[in-house]
Design a protein around this nucleic acid. Structure first.
Lengths: 109, 109
DNA sequence: AAAGTTGCTATCTTTTTTGTAGCATTGCTA
DNA sequence: TAGCAATGCTACAAAAAAGATAGCAACTTT
């Protein structure tokens, strides 16, 4: 298994540019969705699966491991949850929601 | 071929939630990388391929079509370039770079 | 002790992505 | 104007990732 790590070759940068490593991490299926849903609060594996509506356990498990390795997610007694770093990323992704709302109107005006 | 479209089922939302549609679009391999590289200025298909360091023409072509359909990218006499909407997304992604720099230090302190 | 919940793993199928070759078109340039 | 380079792809096969589904081991609750 390979986890995108800054400093090692990643998609978009053979030298492991930090931003490309992040894009590689966040650009995998469900990664951003998981972060988004976890911001509602920590929860169990199965509950998270339901929040995501249709993610398979294998994919969820893989993403959780990657995001945990990347220190965006941690496991506590409450289940899986965002770390401080994870919440920071959430905050950075947050503005996308407003943008997406406007964007959506152009498809369904 | 399927393009993630708000209002239609996408990864993370059967009802096509706009944000999940955007995550589906941006969360495909190279999507964010392409937007990032295009911000350097419009360029030809082959030049873009080189900027990306290692993307295959088939993937690049597919992403370009998706991003064009999504109105983030357009084609002009200068080649492929960001639309106004595309630049907006770039601006929203921009803060990730600073964050990623700090994050990288924790992997290679 | 039986039943339910949880966090997965195993297995198989389908979809994506990759790698590589190469073709058709355009624009030089000799 | 015949050749050559550059461009924007497409074709095709192989590898990797994601998805669907079943089910098991551990732990709790009843």
């Amino acid at each position: 298994m390979s986890f995108p790590t800054p400093g090692k070759p990643v998609r978009g940068s053979k030298s492991g540019n930090h931003l490309m490593a992040l894009f590689d991490l966040l650009g995998r299926s469900w990664a951003m969705g998981i972060i988004w849903r976890l911001n509602e609060g920590p929860c169990t594996f199965r509950a998270l699966q339901e929040r995501c509506e249709s993610i398979s356990p294998s994919t969820l498990n893989k993403r959780l491991k990657e995001l945990t390795t990347a220190a965006l997610i941690q496991r506590t007694v409450e289940g899986y949850g965002l770390t401080d770093k994870g919440e920071e990323i959430f905050q950075l992704l947050h503005p996308l929601e407003t943008w997406a709302r406007t964007w959506a109107k152009e498809f369904n005006p």
